[in-house]
């Protein structure tokens, strides 16, 4: 197995009855890469991601995440990944510190580690003044940055982001992407699922899923050149029209 390929997927398929929600998809993601996993609602993104994070068993095919097989080592996969979604991220009724302590705890960090890490994290995000405030009272942008940091708390090899920046103001969104670049620079692989095409522009490589199949896979630049358009939104429109 190639050590640099942290996600290896081959002919991965998930059937619901006669319906192939995910139809023999094949791709690899390299260490430290920001990989965009795009598709419309219902294209099969979520089903595919659920298989990769070990909470859904594939019907057939092969897939290894962080070196663990999705069929046999799903529990090990869960330990080596982080996950953040726009819908569920943090507990609104716990304070910033309590959230960090809780998520650190479920990933098995020691008390000392949690203490050190939360200090660094709060400093980096500039949350010193609100560390003991309820997360529910924070602006949306802060919450998202915090939940991304929490997803990275246990130094996962791969972090899965589900539509991370939808609806955030443009400046915060850029701060968020700067954090993602930093994580990738430090060797964490970032796997972004989204149907917001402008999020796709930031990824190193993107795949576009249509009806359960990967219909395109390349860097945003190459895709735009190939389809002769100037943004990812139009790439998607062209693909969907075919």
């Amino acid at each position: 197995m190639n050590k640099n390929k942290v996600i290896q997927v081959e002919e991965l398929t998930k059937m619901f009855g006669d319906f192939a929600a995910v139809n023999a998809i094949t791709f690899n993601v390299e260490k430290g890469e920001i990989f965009g996993f795009l598709g419309a609602n219902g294209a099969g993104k979520t089903t595919a991601m659920k298989m990769l994070i070990g909470i859904s068993k594939p019907t057939s095919g092969k897939a290894a995440v962080a070196g663990y097989d999705v069929f046999t080592n799903a529990e090990d996969i869960k330990k080596s990944i982080g996950y953040m979604s726009q819908k569920f991220a943090l507990y609104d009724d716990l304070t910033v510190k309590e959230n960090i302590t809780f998520f650190g705890g479920i990933y098995g960090l020691s008390r000392k580690q949690i203490k050190e890490k939360s200090k660094v994290l709060i400093e980096e995000l500039g949350l010193e003044n609100v560390a003991n405030k309820l997360v529910g009272a924070l602006p949306l942008g802060w919450k998202q940055k915090l939940s991304f940091s929490v997803a990275l708390l246990h130094d996962p090899k791969i972090v899965f982001l589900d539509e991370p920046t939808g609806g955030v103001d443009p400046i915060t969104r850029r701060q968020f992407w700067e954090m993602i670049y930093k994580a990738a620079h430090n060797g964490t692989t970032v796997f972004v699922t989204t149907h917001y095409m402008d999020e796709a522009e930031y990824c190193d490589r993107v795949s576009i899923m249509v009806n359960g199949k990967i219909e395109a896979l390349n860097t945003p630049k190459k895709l735009k050149e190939y389809f002769k358009v100037d943004n990812m939104n139009d790439v998607f429109l062209k693909l969907a029209r075919e």
């Binding site: 850029r174 522009e201 930031y202 860097t219 990812m232």
Partner: peptide
């Protein structure tokens, strides 16, 4: 004056 990531 300003530095913003903007896609690629």
């Amino acid at each position: 004056h300003s530095v913003y990531p903007f896609g690629e």
